[in-house]
Design a protein around this nucleic acid. Structure first.
Length: 168
DNA sequence: ACCCCGATCGTA
DNA sequence: ACGATCGGGGTT
């Protein structure tokens, strides 16, 4: 299981290194295939860019905790908080490959939450460190990946902070 | 109290 | 490339 110190690293580095690691959620487990980094400072696309609000509060807490938000009136997105306590940064988990599950069901942030059953009501602010039911485990894999602009944002497209495995 | 718009998805 | 969709966050 990845320690808290892993998630306390710079957010872009965490997003990179999460590619190929194993996400465990209840009965389900799979390899993370796509991530995006969101930074408090100098990143207007980040929910925490304008300071703490009820929605983004957990982003400002300790690293290694889940941040789940509701979007477009019908989808949830799952993030893992990064950096030191007090800094509003996180990595959005955009996709994972689960054995015997068609990738089309887990290859987007909304689809992934829908498949796993992740909701803000139940899964926002969950501690992932030392949690056997919900955590990220090291695989030792370092698969090749592409770095691209992030999806669905207006500002901050100049940052290549989306990471996707090359061979799915 | 309310308005606007979004870290999406599916189809064209 | 674009339209559907709609709850709720953020500001009034």
């Amino acid at each position: 299981m990845l320690p808290r110190t892993f998630f306390e690293q710079p957010t872009v580095e965490v997003a990179r290194q999460l590619i190929g690691q194993q996400l465990v959620f209840g009965n389900h487990q799979g390899l993370i295939t796509e991530t995006e980094a969101y930074l408090q400072d100098g990143d207007p696309a980040c929910h925490a860019a304008r300071g703490p609000t009820p929605r983004n509060a957990v982003m400002f807490g300790p690293a290694g905790v889940s941040y789940v938000y509701f979007i477009y009136g019908m989808y949830y997105c799952f993030n893992i908080v990064t950096e030191q306590d007090g800094y509003g940064c996180a990595v959005l988990i955009r996709g994972m490959k689960i054995d015997n599950v068609p990738y089309a069901q887990t290859n987007g942030p909304g689809k992934l939450c829908r498949f796993l059953g992740i909701t803000r009501e139940k899964h926002n602010g969950i501690e992932l460190i030392g949690n056997p039911d919900f955590h990220v485990a090291a695989t030792g894999l370092t698969p090749p990946y592409d770095a691209t602009s992030r999806i669905g944002i207006r500002e901050g497209k100049e940052h290549m902070w989306r990471f996707v495995v090359k061979n799915i």
